[in-house]
Amino acid sequence: MKAERIKSIGIDGLLKNNPTFRLVLGTCPTLALTTAATNGIGMGLAVTFILICSNVIISLLRKIIPGEVRIPAFVMIIATFVTLVRMLLDKFIPDLYESMGVYLPLIVVNCIILGRAESFASKNPVADSALDGLFTGLGFTWAMTAISIIREVLGAGQLFGITLWDFRIEFFTSSAGAFFVYGLCIALFNGAYTKIESKMRRKRFRSLYEAPLGEETLQAVAEQDTSVKEGR
């Protein structure tokens, strides 16, 4: 496993193709379970575990499953792992199981898992798929945690269950507030991301364009044709 590859999969999963903020996948649990930070983390870790397991199995079986029935096959594999996680949570962490409620079995049709299976695991070797599952899941987890911290602090005056103060704006724990906070977070994340990305791109290409004789001026970044050079 080349370190470059690991890094690119990592950046993809955590930032560039963050499932919540960039791909906007799996919004149903995001909106419903971000009322408390513990719920957010629990859901995120459950999805991560299922992602890794299902990505590994699907990647192992990718040569065997015919293309026509890949969706039913994926769903069956994912459903197996979700049921496994349900049983484990019910037995060992019943509080989390109850607070997740119906959203735990809904992980089966969570678009993140199906999407990563379809677009990555069915076309890449096992180790890559496992890493992709891990990083995408972690990206989902940190996004959920960020949103749920905002909602919990503003809406319930608590953080991880510890009451901070008595002032609550119940708007943020309601579903209307969920959409509102989610939209604002997408806007903030994408704004910050494009700013940082354009800065880094400018830095990178400036170093490639060293003026050889000292007379040629640097071409302005806006005029450079960067679309071709991007893909590596």
């Binding site: 704006i169 119940e170 708007f171 943020f172 309601s174 209307a176 507030g177």
Partner: peptide, 8 residues
């Protein structure tokens, strides 16, 4: 409506 939902 915000006030109604937030501070019902």
């Amino acid at each position: 409506v915000f006030a109604f939902i937030a501070f019902s």
